[in-house]
Amino acid sequence: MGSMGDEVGEAIAGELRLMDPSVRMSRALARQLLDPHFVEVGASGRRWTYEEMLAALPEMTGAAEDGPRYEPSEMVGVVLAPGLVHLTYETTIDGNRARRSSLWRRRGAEGEWRMYYHQATPVPAEG
């Protein structure tokens, strides 16, 4: 088993991979990073299940190689228990900001890290 810093690093690496257009476009690659019990509450307020997210991800913002990309900032993680990491950060994409929170857990014989829960909350435009 790795150290707590390693666990946070593994979760951050997975989070960043999920922002990569090549992963977002590939159901097979995204499946490796999402827990089968995955749930998301998106910035729109919609609740997404594992299958819904895998089906929609290639069409979502950030999936096109030549389109807008997620720009994460202030990403930090905390080990809640062995094999369970909570990440918080902000993203900007196409001028829209959101505060994000993810739970990552280590599963399977190989100890793969997968996103179990994700929530995005829009940040209102400053004015």
Results as ranks from 00 to 15, higher is better:
residue 75 M to T: 11
residue 61 T to P: 08
residue 116 Y to G: 07
residue 17 R to D: 10
residue 82 P to E: 06
residue 110 E to I: 07
residue 67 G to N: 09
residue 80 L to P: 04
residue 34 L to Q: 06
residue 16 L to K: 07
residue 93 I to C: 07
residue 118 H to F: 14
residue 15 E to D: 01
residue 114 R to V: 12
residue 80 L to W: 01
residue 112 E to M: 13
residue 66 D to G: 04
residue 99 R to G: 14
residue 127 G to W: 04
residue 73 S to G: 13
residue 89 Y to V: 07
residue 78 V to I: 10
residue 30 A to V: 10
residue 84 L to T: 00
residue 89 Y to A: 10
residue 85 V to N: 04
residue 17 R to K: 14
residue 99 R to W: 13
residue 122 P to E: 09
residue 125 A to V: 10
residue 15 E to V: 00
residue 127 G to M: 11
residue 65 E to F: 03
residue 37 H to P: 06
residue 120 A to F: 06
residue 99 R to L: 15
residue 84 L to H: 00
residue 43 A to H: 02
residue 19 M to K: 01
residue 32 Q to N: 10
residue 122 P to T: 12
residue 78 V to C: 09
residue 96 N to H: 14
residue 72 P to V: 04
residue 35 D to I: 02
residue 126 E to P: 06
residue 40 E to F: 01
residue 80 L to N: 02
residue 111 G to C: 10
residue 127 G to R: 13
residue 34 L to D: 07
residue 92 T to H: 11
residue 36 P to D: 10
residue 113 W to F: 06
residue 32 Q to P: 03
residue 127 G to C: 11
residue 71 E to I: 03
residue 31 R to S: 14
residue 73 S to E: 12
residue 30 A to T: 15
residue 21 P to F: 03
residue 60 M to W: 08
residue 46 R to N: 05
residue 64 A to M: 12
residue 91 T to G: 11
residue 2 G to N: 11
residue 107 R to W: 11
residue 82 P to A: 03
residue 87 L to Y: 11
residue 37 H to G: 15
residue 109 A to N: 10
residue 84 L to C: 01
residue 80 L to D: 02
residue 16 L to V: 02
residue 114 R to I: 04
residue 56 A to G: 13
residue 3 S to I: 06
residue 123 V to L: 14
residue 106 R to F: 07
residue 109 A to T: 12
residue 112 E to S: 15
residue 50 Y to S: 12
residue 17 R to N: 06
residue 9 G to K: 01
residue 102 S to G: 15
residue 7 E to S: 13
residue 12 I to W: 00
residue 45 G to F: 12
residue 11 A to S: 00
residue 102 S to L: 14
residue 26 S to E: 09
residue 42 G to R: 04
residue 71 E to Y: 01
residue 33 L to I: 02
residue 12 I to P: 00
residue 66 D to C: 03
residue 119 Q to K: 13
residue 77 G to E: 01
